[in-house]
Structure formats: structure tokens, C-alpha cells
């Protein structure tokens, strides 16, 4: 069985919104350590994954490994019935094909319960090599979203060039070209609070060409986190990570476009 109580529905809503256009259905894998998910899109170009650690829930109970097959369109519709500040309780009883979601309003005067039919999905897991990236960029997720949104008006792909001084995003299309350079920065805003900053750590300069359609899809996770981390290695897939407060993360992997 599974019983997991999440303090704010908004987290789950945002996670589902940031995956549902990439993957239509997949298993949520539940274990003692938490709830995780990994699935590729139909064309095998992008992989989406997330982890929500057990300590992010209160309480969290899962006494054996479970794979719960979820259709994201259904989950998304049901989560629209939850208020952002509602507590969400996720429940699964062994040997059933139903996942229950209970939404408790903050004043406790409204408790709604929805059941979702689970699917039997045989999933294929990929083993992702654990290697140190040649370059690791941390930047404002809002800035990253804006760049992807702006450049798709020019072309269908972006070349990301990371050097010690910063990161350059360039796109070329039939009607012209554009580029945006984000310099490495550490700024402080008017209130003396550290503002989102860009940091670049690298062993090698990296240049990757990537589909903007996919990157724009990934930016749906930006509301979850102030920052995005991009792990890049030449001629390898990009890994984008958005932290989910301090309880987990969403990661996307995107295969690069490679010249013949």
C-alpha cells in the first residue's frame, strides 16, 4: 500500500503540467525512498524524470515497491479540482487498480476525494551514464524560459555555447538570426537579497545544438524553481534540472542535433 501526504497541491499540479505534453502515460514508481518517474517521449528524443523523496511527505508510507500506471491527461484534469494550498493525500491499496487522491482545503471545511483508474504499463528504463558534465550552468529559470520563447520565433533549434565568460544562445532561421549572451554574474538586488545569478563551471567549452520545441516544453517546469541547472557535454544529451523545493527534482534529457 501507499499513503503519501503532500502539504501543497501546487507542487503536484506543477509537476504534472510540466510533463503531460511530453509523455501521455507512464508508471509512478513508489518505494520506501519516495516516488519517482522516468519516461521518454514517443520519438525517443527527450526523457522526462522526477523524484519526490519520502521526507517531502508527512507522513509517507510505502511498504513494497509499486508501479502505478498513470494517464497524465486524467491526472491533470483531477488536479485542477484541487486548490493550490490544499493538502493532497495519495492513497493506493494493494491489489486494486485505483489511485485515490484526497484534497483537504486549508480551513479543513472541504474535503474532496477522486479515484483514478490505473493503467497496466510495461515501462522500459534507460540507464543514464553518471558522468561529470564538461560544463554545468546554473541560471534563472525565468531567464531561460524567456530565451527559449524568444528564439523559437527565429528558428527551430538553438546552439548553446558555454564558455567561462558566459552562455550564448543562438538561433538561425529562414528569415534571419538572433543570439542572446548571458554573462556569468553574481548580483544583489535592492533589498540586499541575492538575485538570480548565472554561474558557469567547466572543464571544457561546450557547444550543443538542441531542438527549441523540446526546450520550450521543458520550461513548463520553471514555475517550480527559481533556477535551472544545465549539464552539458559535447556531443551528448543535455540534462536540465529544476529542483522541487527541497524535496526532489524534475530532470529532462534532450538528445542533441548532430552535424553529419
Amino acid at each position: 500500500m501507499l499513503e503519501a501526504r503532500l502539504p501543497a497541491a501546487s507542487i503536484l499540479k506543477k509537476i504534472v503540467e510540466s510533463i503531460k505534453d511530453l509523455v501521455s502515460q507512464a508508471n509512478f514508481d513508489c518505494s520506501e525512498s519516495g516516488i519517482s518517474f522516468q519516461a521518454m517521449d514517443e520519438s525517443n528524443i527527450a526523457l522526462s524524470s522526477f523524484l519526490l523523496r519520502a521526507d517531502g511527505f508527512d507522513p509517507y508510507r510505502c511498504d513494497r515497491k509499486l508501479s502505478l500506471g498513470i494517464r497524465f491527461a486524467t491526472l491533470s484534469k483531477i488536479l485542477k479540482c484541487a486548490g493550490n494550498d490544499d493538502v493532497v493525500v495519495i492513497r493506493y491499496a494493494d491489489d486494486t487498480d485505483i489511485l485515490s487522491l484526497v484534497f483537504e482545503a486549508p480551513d479543513n471545511n472541504r474535503i474532496s476525494e477522486f479515484d483514478i483508474k490505473l493503467l497496466d504499463i510495461s515501462s522500459e528504463y534507460l540507464s543514464i551514464p553518471e558522468q561529470e558534465p564538461e560544463c554545468k550552468v546554473k541560471m534563472s529559470s525565468a531567464e531561460f524560459s524567456r530565451i527559449c520563447r524568444d528564439l523559437i520565433t527565429i528558428g527551430s533549434s538553438v546552439v548553446i555555447d558555454a564558455t567561462k565568460s558566459g552562455v550564448k544562445f543562438s538561433s538561425t532561421g529562414d528569415d534571419g538570426s538572433g543570439s542572446i549572451l548571458i554573462k556569468q554574474s553574481a548580483s544583489v538586488d535592492g533589498d540586499g537579497k541575492a538575485a538570480p545569478q548565472t554561474t558557469v563551471e567547466m572543464s571544457e567549452p561546450v557547444s550543443l545544438e538542441l531542438s527549441l520545441k523540446y526546450l520550450n516544453n521543458f520550461t513548463k517546469a520553471a514555475p517550480l524553481s527559481e533556477y535551472v541547472v544545465m549539464n552539458m557535454t559535447n556531443d551528448s544529451p543535455l540534462m536540465l534540472q529544476f529542483d522541487v523545493s527541497d524535496i526532489g527534482y524534475i530532470r529532462y534529457f534532450l538528445a542533441p542535433q548532430i552535424k553529419d
Binding site: 521518454m40 528524443i45 527527450a46 522500459e124 534507460l126 540507464s127 533549434s157 538528445a255 542535433q257 548532430i258
Partner: peptide
């Protein structure tokens, strides 16, 4: 134009 690669050429199946 560059070709879109597949993730399968980088990641193995578990």
C-alpha cells in the same frame, strides 16, 4: 542541417 539524434544512441536499456 544537423540531424536530430535519438537518446537511445546514448543511453542503454536497463
Amino acid at each position: 542541417k544537423p540531424n536530430q539524434s535519438s537518446l537511445m544512441s546514448f543511453f542503454g536499456k536497463k
